[in-house]
Amino acid sequence: MIKSVLMEKVAEKVKNFTKKDVEVIADAIFDNMKGSLAKGEKIEIRGFGSFKVKKHKARKGRNPKTGESIDINAKKNPFFKVGKELKERINSSR
């Protein structure tokens, strides 16, 4: 399901909102979440899961093809941990 389909589905469920309104809110949500993660904050959505930023130290790597040693810079990666409720819901469906 892509975002526009998600927007349609949500708009069908709310009375006073158009698809456009829902879209504005959804964009604000994900933008806000992105900004929060960029600051290194943790986000917790009850019943869904949590997002945090994992830090990786700089390390030496190797080009597997040539065997050449290269430096891999330190980096940060967004990480999502599934909430217990959602984990169980996904696993119980067949």
Partner: peptide
């Protein structure tokens, strides 16, 4: 309400 519904709808789809 809309925030709640967005996450609910995502969950339904994933389920």
């Amino acid at each position: 309400e809309v925030v709640e519904l967005i996450f609910d709808t995502i969950k339904d789809s994933l389920e």
